[in-house]
Amino acid sequence: MPITGFWRSAVLGAKESTPFCVSTFLFGILFGVAATASGLSLFLGLVMSGATFSASAQFAAMELWSHPLPVSAILLSVFLVSSRNILLGLSITNHIDGHSLLTRLVCLGLLSDPGVVMVLRASRSINNLGYLFGYGAALWVSWVASVWLGFAFSNVFTGADIGALAFAGPLVMTCMMMLFVKGGRGHKLAWVVSGISALLMAMVGLEAYLILPVAVMVGIIPILMQLGGSNE
């Protein structure tokens, strides 16, 4: 049965976000611990988490958190790690029509990687904007609650080997990638080309912030060639 209403789709999105809420929860606790170690107060940590709602951006900011604050460097770093959001926004251009621009811009504040993956992996009769909103809202609640817990119980984690979890981000991304791969609506050649080009750039020691845009541009070449070929 198709679910076409905004709020019904939002509820569906919130329900389907549960698996990623679990990993978000873990990252939130880690962020709370890291923020406590950096000297951020609970109030400001919650303001940051509620307003930013981005693990990668917040961890990037915390890495540079020192006194006096290197504000420009922090903002540049946050922009670079968040630049993939631009690609996410581009990818859903044709999927969230039927609402006012204001509604779309408000809902995009809760844009999340797994939410976009779930919208793109399969064609369903749902209100995609509502789904993205519900998905993002559930992740937001999980994120803010877990950051609070991280602050509250930071002493428990003192001395724990949190550095061992540095690879946790790529693991969660791999889960998302597998959803794409199994979704069957993919552009597998583009993904493989992006992956190979990213590997080559990593091998020659290119800076991480350059690898993302270049690998994505190289990855879409096969699709552009396909489009060009079908045009002739």
């Binding site: 251009t93 794409f180 993904w191 993302l212 994505v216 990855g219």
Partner: peptide, 29 residues
Amino acid sequence: LGQRLRHIGRLRPVLEALPGCALMALIVP
């Protein structure tokens, strides 16, 4: 930006491939 480009309907597969390409570009390195 996508709103500006959406009149080029043929770009749709390119736009939809972007998140997967981005994930691969982050995971592989």
